[in-house]
Design a protein around this nucleic acid. Structure first.
Length: 499
RNA sequence: GGCGCCAUCGUCUAUCGGUUAGGACAGCGCCCUUUCAAGGCGCAGAGACGGGUUCGAUUCCCGUUGGCGCUACCA
């Protein structure tokens, strides 16, 4: 059998290390068996998907050294590889399900669904679709359609019995059909949901093994059912454990840097990061932990992937990266990496133009620009608080800025300035007083090169990390504060439109 | 809450019924060394709990506990 695997990221944010991890496993499995590895973009969420995110994901995976045989940028015989370009295909298959009576149109409004769930929660029932539109007569359906009412298409689900999902690593997983919801397959905007799109695409793209995150286990019955409805043979399934924060919760950017871009900005080498991820996939029998992609493929054995969710241990990554820096590179190679990391020509020029007006001797450069070449800065809570704002206001300004920065698409001076001004407005403070602690948090000093430029140069991920660190110093907002501050944010400063 | 997944040192893991439970990161100590790293050597550190099955369980089964995930017109 020709093995074909895929990774199917959703372009709704920064490229996540978890995506790289899943991609790596899929890559290794396919290559180990001489098969193909496909990259597919799951951008059926029109609100959240952005081309910037897609670009960043593709770039990041390439940066890590992963290559796919088919994908939106590579082409291939099963394209298009971007789901937003496959609407007609899904529509056709929805038609098939509808005609066969495996799916039905649902005219329920979001409000009704919300009320229904609330009632179910109140009655201690699991929230599930109540099947109301299942009982619609054909006359009623025609009337609703004639009136142009918006509808979604839901799948029918057996009322009783169990679904056995075969997981390559975990064995059979039994899930009762009556715990499976009548999932929406096609949204009212005509786009498919993940459940429909992934089944149709995996079949059409001849994917033989679906290796994905553990979060999909509970919806696997829906997917199996769809294969059955279509009369297709389902691919083999394997669910990978989720990467964890040190506290064992699912790795999240609230608690840790999760963006591949962050690790790149911090000066980790792509081969070290990939190797590190590979250590979570397969451990070396001989004990040697340095392994390139080829070695990872060669020693790959899915039987050896442990099922416990591994903590993303940055200290071990640091050690591994250090070994790459001093063992795998000679001085010339090292210098080349340094230059590429921090002195790429246009960046160097930008830095020079910011520094030049502020130095009297070239030897002033070190202290002035050190923050650009550092990870965490040695700042203290006292330094953050020593301006006109009190500690509470500083905390609030950092939290607000962090949240608002997340919504910024284009990480540029103008956008950064806009956010900081909006923060000052929300706090009803002078911009100058608000920005002072930001200088400290970002550059380590209240006086430095212009803040917005510094932040743009630092990049979104380092900025986020420094804000998080500063917030840790001052005390993270608790749940109640977070809620109150977010409300304040909504009330006093509606996010300005995207420039 | 319901359903599901998972469970070896602080962390990543080896072990696939019989081992002094091995290695790596982090920690600690010693050595090397003009300093600091790096490196070498060493120390400390684990089978969640309770029942079975078995001559024998970390390993197989059940239960408990704990962690995690899902519970959307997000993926």
């Amino acid at each position: 059998m020709n093995v074909r695997t895929r990774v199917a990221p959703s372009p709704t944010g920064d490229p996540h290390v978890g995506t790289a991890y899943v991609a790596l496993v899929n890559y290794c499995f396919a290559k180990k068996h001489g098969g193909q590895f496909v990259l597919r973009i799951e951008d059926t969420d029109r609100q959240r998907s952005t081309p910037e995110s897609e670009r960043a994901i593709l770039d990041s995976l390439h940066w890590l050294g992963l290559a796919w045989d088919e994908g939106p940028d590579a082409g291939g015989p099963h394209g298009p590889y971007r789901q937003s370009e496959r609407s007609d295909i899904y529509r056709e298959y929805v038609r098939v399900l509808l005609d066969a009576g495996h799916a039905f149109k649902c005219f329920c409004t979001p409000q009704r669904l919300e009320e229904m769930r609330e009632a179910q929660r109140a009655a201690k029932q699991p929230p599930r679709y109540d099947g109301s539109c299942l009982r619609l007569t054909s006359a009623e359906i025609e009337r609703a359609e004639a009136a142009n009412e918006r509808y979604v298409v839901r799948m029918k689900v057996p009322e009783r019995g169990v679904c056995v999902v075969d997981d390559l690593r975990r064995g059979p997983i039994e899930i009762e059909w009556n715990t499976v919801d009548m999932q929406v397959l096609m949204k009212s905007d005509g786009m498919p949901t993940y459940h429909l799109a992934n089944v149709v695409d995996d079949h059409l793209m001849e994917i033989t093994h679906v290796i994905r995150g553990e979060e999909w286990v509970s919806s696997a019955p829906k997917h199996m059912l769809l294969y059955r409805y279509f009369g297709w043979e389902p691919p083999k399934l394997m669910h990978l454990p989720l990467l964890r924060n040190p506290d064992k919760s699912k790795l999240s950017k609230r608690k840790n840097p999760t963006s591949i871009l962050f690790y790149r900005a911090m000066g980790y080498l792509p081969e070290a990061l990939l190797n590190f991820l590979g250590l979570l996939v397969s451990s070396s029998p001989e004990g040697e932990e340095i392994a390139d992609l080829g070695t990872l493929v060669q020693r790959f054995d899915f039987e050896h992937i442990s099922l416990g969710g591994p903590v993303f241990d940055v200290q071990k990554l640091d050690w591994l990266n250090g070994r790459y820096l001093r063992e795998q590179l000679d001085t010339a190679g090292f210098l080349q990496r340094v230059l590429a990391w921090g002195f790429e020509p246009s960046r160097a020029e930008r830095i020079a133009s910011l520094a030049r007006p502020r130095v009297e001797r070239l030897s002033d450069l070190g202290p002035l620009l050190a923050f650009l070449f550092a990870g965490r800065l040695p700042v203290t809570a006292e330094q953050l608080r020593d301006g006109k704002l009190d500690g509470e206001q500083v905390r609030r300004s950092f939290a607000l800025a962090m949240w608002r920065f997340d919504a910024v698409r284009d990480w540029r001076v103008a956008e950064i300035e806009r956010v900081l001004k909006s923060v000052a407005e929300s706090l009803r403070q002078k911009l100058r007083d608000v920005t002072r602690p930001f200088y400290v948090a970002m550059t380590g000093s209240p006086t430095s090169v212009p803040l917005y430029d510094a932040m743009e140069l630092l990049g979104r991920d380092i900025v986020r990390e420094r804000l998080r660190f500063a917030l840790d110093l001052l005390g993270r907002p608790n749940a109640a504060e977070e809620k109150a501050w977010k409300a304040l944010q909504a009330a006093s400063a509606p996010p300005p439109e995207i420039a």
